[in-house]
Amino acid sequence: MSRYGDYTRDPCPWVILNDTGGAFAMGAIGSGIWHFVKGAKNSPKGERIIGAITAVKARAPVLGGNFAVWGGLFSTFDCTLKGIRQKEDPWNLIASGFLTGGVLAARGGIGASARSAAFGAFALALIEGISIAASKFFAPSPMIQMPDLQPPPNVSA
């Protein structure tokens, strides 16, 4: 999930499109699973499948769209901050989470916007912190794994 220091991602303007689509797919699939179960549970017996499918059709694209807006705006802010600061570090992500939350809740007034911005920054800081910790935990630094030094062949013989 961590985006910084990842060399397999697209260069910056294009990564916005990539992120928007990925976020839409993620939201739509996740919400599809969620609402399939929920719709089947809330339907009367005998109509569970059709109820589940109806719930998925009605609700999965909506959550996918919400995710896509969040991801696209987040990626846009991330690229903007990278371009302005000419640096890539976790603060970019935290600041863009803050800005995204603030902009998306701007219609609710300054209070709602500030709360949503704080939520975004906090969530992104948590995700970044945990992913840095996980990468340190799962993959120890390759500097440690030095190859064994072979003794030089004996040339005097």
């Binding site: 999930m1 060399y7 991602r9 993620m26 699939i29 996740g30 699973i33």
Partner: peptide, 24 residues
Amino acid sequence: GSFALFMGIGSFIRSEPSKNMMLK
């Protein structure tokens, strides 16, 4: 639960090796 669901799916669908990886 919800975070695990969504982040699991997110890393599942975004896990294909990209062109840059293949170039590398």
